[in-house]
Write a protein that binds this DNA or RNA. Structure first.
Lengths: 173, 173
DNA sequence: CTGATTTTTCAGTATTTACTGAAAACCGTG
DNA sequence: CACGGTTTTCAGTAAATACTGAAAAATCAG
């Protein structure tokens, strides 16, 4: 039945478009999120040209965002025998996706924050005025908390999906 | 000793500047992050004019970012008797800050994602082709995972700081 | 080595987001 | 209800970010 194929195409197009819009909120650019959505729901791996055509974007744009997704580890290139072009496919396992995103966010958001907090804490160490003590204490408590959250995130990412789930179930129960 | 006061000012200025730069990564605008940093490390609550002067920004800019921070719940206005102007002070408790940020991120990032995933899953329900089944399954597994993560986040935010810490300690131990 | 195909780069441009400054609205006081 | 201080709005502008398209570089088969 042809309508089924159309319904699927429609649902998928919507997913790609909306996921792209969401990407903006997440601090990821729209195109990158769209390509990710497209590849996550592609039955077969795609070439750069196919991505360009599907999303109606330029070669340069497709290229740089594909590279970025590869750098994140959210997609990978696959070689097909007898094919000179590169094909790309997405990581589809949700737990994998989660750990990749968590790792990247940690690198870009948590680690730099820790560096700043630590430096400001050091610089204000031993200042004897009440303001100095308060500032130092504030830096340390922020640092402690962020460092702690960072370690938690690492731990969880290293777990196997099943184990994390089981543990969380206990927490939610 | 005057150098101590200077050292503190220097450390604090650095914190404000760097925290602002970090804000960009977090998808928060620089000024908003700077005002937050400034107020988090202010011994006393500040007026809009003081914020403007300290960060060398316009009134409009100060105003709108202060309002945004109030909307998040990261700062609040305080009234001083005999003063007509509004003063602002930041929430300083790290656990509070964490839960506020978690709540806001959930609202802006998680909830819309869930809505999309759920809709696309519904729309592709019952399509009999292999591609249709695969798409539907992918939507559902993403939805399940995100919904689960969302519930976890709620649970943790509702905990008292001490309890969350204790639980996490067990996890890290 | 040559020529065809594919990937990469990047200057120029478009779009989005943030900021300024001044005018308008608001608000308490006399 | 008029006045001075204070907050809010917003049109215009500046800055940051993303995208295009074409040229250059790389890759590979013959």
């Amino acid at each position: 039945m042809n309508t089924e194929i159309e319904k699927l195409k429609q649902a998928r197009d919507e997913f790609v478009a909306q996921w792209g819009a969401l990407g903006t909120q997440w601090g990821i650019n729209r195109t990158m999120a769209q390509i990710h959505a497209l590849l996550m729901t592609a039955p077969e791996s795609l070439t750069t040209d196919e991505v360009m055509e599907e999303l109606e974007i330029s070669r340069g744009n497709a290229h740089s965002n594909i590279k970025e997704l590869v750098a994140w580890g959210l997609i990978r290139s696959v070689v097909k025998k007898g094919e000179r072009r590169e094909f790309f496919e997405a990581e589809k396992d949700v737990w994998q996706i989660f750990t990749i995103v968590a790792r990247e966010r940690k690198r870009r958001e948590i680690d730099p924050a820790l560096a700043i907090l630590n430096r400001c804490a050091e610089e204000s160490e031993g200042i004897a005025t009440p303001e100095g003590k308060a500032f130092h204490a504030q830096m340390r408590s922020l640092e402690d908390f962020v460092s702690f959250a960072s370690k938690m995130s690492d731990r969880i990412s290293l777990m196997k999906h099943g184990f994390a789930l089981q543990m969380a179930a206990k927490l939610l129960g």
